[in-house]
Computed example of a mutant assay.
Amino acid sequence: MSYPVQDMMGQELRLEGIPSRIVSLVPSQTELLYDLGLEEEVVGITKFCIHPEAWFRSKARVGGTKTVHFDRVQALQPDLIIANKEENVQDQVEALRTIAPVWVSDIRSPEDNLEMIRQIGLLTGTSPKAEVIIQQLQSDFATLPLANCLGRKVAYLIWYNPIMAAGNDTFIHEVLSRIGFENVLKNAPRYPELDMEALQQLQPELLLLSSEPFPFAEKHIKIFQEHLPETTIMLVDGELFSWYGSRMLHAVTYFNELFI
């Protein structure tokens, strides 16, 4: 007998009991499914689902987060597809609903992350494990903000050529705020483009160059330092600022080590 479930977008879907064949279209949520112990249940992932490495090497891949191959998904005969509003394309999500129920997350804050973990735990019959993760994340984030970060002006870049940064209404912005930083792009829309002159005018004390989605490297530090001689510039692990789910279990320790 089927029963109704509502996702984080308010969309209702109907499930036929606890899912036994799951396709995940979101790298961070794939890792969460692993940490919930769903080795047998997860049958398909994307080519960007690199954690855990064992799944990346062994699970069927259904394309990218924005280039899903419907025939591959259909061949796996899933009874649940897990997606995300920002990571996946709406038209593709709608088309996938003809194959199986699609549960979509919408995460803008650490609190949204906890709710996502709780709901996926309920969906998959792994609530006890989900609650352990939630309690640990609550404990970790209760130690923030970091005293030596309070009020420091920061810009967090996610792309180069064009330069793109994390603005307001993003998970990254919320994480920066919890650490204690003031995002110099807090009044900008989600992922604004800006040129070097605009970045100079913002006068960030700290410039964070993310490892993803653009792989910033040491050579980029030199480029930005020429234009921002008074700014401290650092390469950072983008996963620990932007991957919600259980990856956040490693975040606060990383922040303490990075900004000590």
Rank of each mutant, 00 (worst) to 15 (best):
F224V: 08
W243L: 09
A75G: 09
D112R: 03
Q135Y: 01
F56W: 14
F259V: 06
L208N: 06
A188W: 02
L123K: 01
F56I: 12
A155K: 05
S242Y: 01
V184C: 04
V23C: 08
P101Y: 13
V89N: 09
D169N: 15
I223G: 00
T126S: 11
D71P: 01
M164W: 04
I260A: 13
I99L: 14
S2L: 08
E115V: 15
E257V: 01
S246T: 14
L144S: 03
I82E: 06
V23S: 13
F216C: 10
K129A: 14
V89G: 04
N148D: 12
G125N: 08
A130Y: 06
G44F: 06
H69K: 09
S127C: 04
V26P: 00
I120W: 01
A155T: 06
I133K: 09
R21I: 11
I50T: 15
A60P: 01
L114V: 07
G167K: 10
E40G: 10
H250P: 00
M8L: 06
E197D: 11
F255D: 05
G63I: 12
T126N: 13
S24D: 11
D91Y: 02
L208R: 02
Q11V: 10
T170L: 11
T143D: 04
V68I: 15
Q92H: 10
P128G: 14
E39K: 13
Y34V: 05
I172H: 00
S127Q: 14
P4Q: 12
H227I: 10
E131S: 11
A155M: 08
